[in-house]
């Protein structure tokens, strides 16, 4: 028996907006602790991890470990139909994930489960020299600003500032933010702007983002729900001088 009820439909909608732009299919794991997924995109550039502990849900019931394999695009098409005030209920039957929206009316969708042969990958454990927090909206704005001049973005941090910048053929752009945190080293890596943009589609998950940066290391971006019961995080491989 699996049943999960969520009053904030935005959590699923915003998570899968990002997830569906990164991977075509996912294996969600449900157990008594909650729901989680780990997925790696086809070209092994972005890794995504979603964890919704049972405390996130208004009601959560799961007697045995369950693998829920879905096509992310199909799931996203359904989640887009959720209205902000709808309660969302997730259940499974033989071969389907059942998504029910309950508001003015009760609307029920069945999404066919798919076969996924491989095991979900586990995230690599990397040691980072820096970790700091920035407002999510600032990151979103930075992407827009840097996108004016380039399709790549350099992210760097030092004792005082976090900086997003790019040098383009026709001009340069730079965003500086005083992070106010204790950072003892500086770090810089370059990323594909398009890939960062995909991650930042999850703009209703959290007000702030925890960033870990190293030199020519993957970008580790974590969005955490205020309750600490939910996390959506990403690892993005850098662009490296060849």
């Amino acid at each position: 028996m699996f049943k999960a009820v969520l009053s904030d439909s935005n959590i699923l909608k915003t998570s899968f907006d990002a997830i569906s732009s990164i991977v075509d299919e996912v294996q969600m794991m449900a157990d008594e602790e909650g729901l989680r997924l780990d997925a790696l995109d086809r070209s092994h550039i972005t890794f995504v991890h979603l964890e919704l502990k049972k405390g996130v849900f208004d009601e959560y019931q799961c007697d045995e470990t369950l693998k829920i394999n879905v096509d992310t695009e199909e799931l996203m098409k359904v989640l887009k139909r959720a209205k902000a005030e709808d309660m969302v209920e997730l259940t499974v039957d033989e071969g389907n994930l059942i998504v029910t929206f309950e508001g003015e009316a009760k609307r029920k969708f069945k999404i066919r489960l798919i076969d996924i042969e491989y095991e979900a990958p586990s995230p690599p454990e990397l040691e980072y020299p820096t970790e700091f927090e920035v407002p999510f909206s600032l990151l979103k704005d930075s992407i827009q600003d840097i996108g004016i001049v380039s399709d790549k973005i350099s992210l760097q941090v030092n004792e005082e500032k976090f900086q997003a910048s790019a040098e383009g053929e026709f001009g340069d752009a730079k965003v500086e933010y005083v992070h106010g945190e204790r950072i003892e080293e500086s770090a810089r890596s370059i990323f594909s702007l398009e890939k960062v943009k995909e991650m930042l589609k999850a703009d209703k998950f959290s007000e702030s983002a925890v960033i870990r940066l190293g030199n020519d290391m993957p970008l580790n971006l974590a969005l955490k729900m205020a309750s600490d019961e939910g996390e959506l995080s990403f690892l993005l491989a850098p662009r490296i001088e060849s």
Partner: peptide, 12 residues
């Protein structure tokens, strides 16, 4: 000129 790396290099 830099190029896109893969996470595989960091997974192990």
């Amino acid at each position: 000129q830099e190029k896109q790396s893969s996470l595989d290099a960091f997974f192990n």
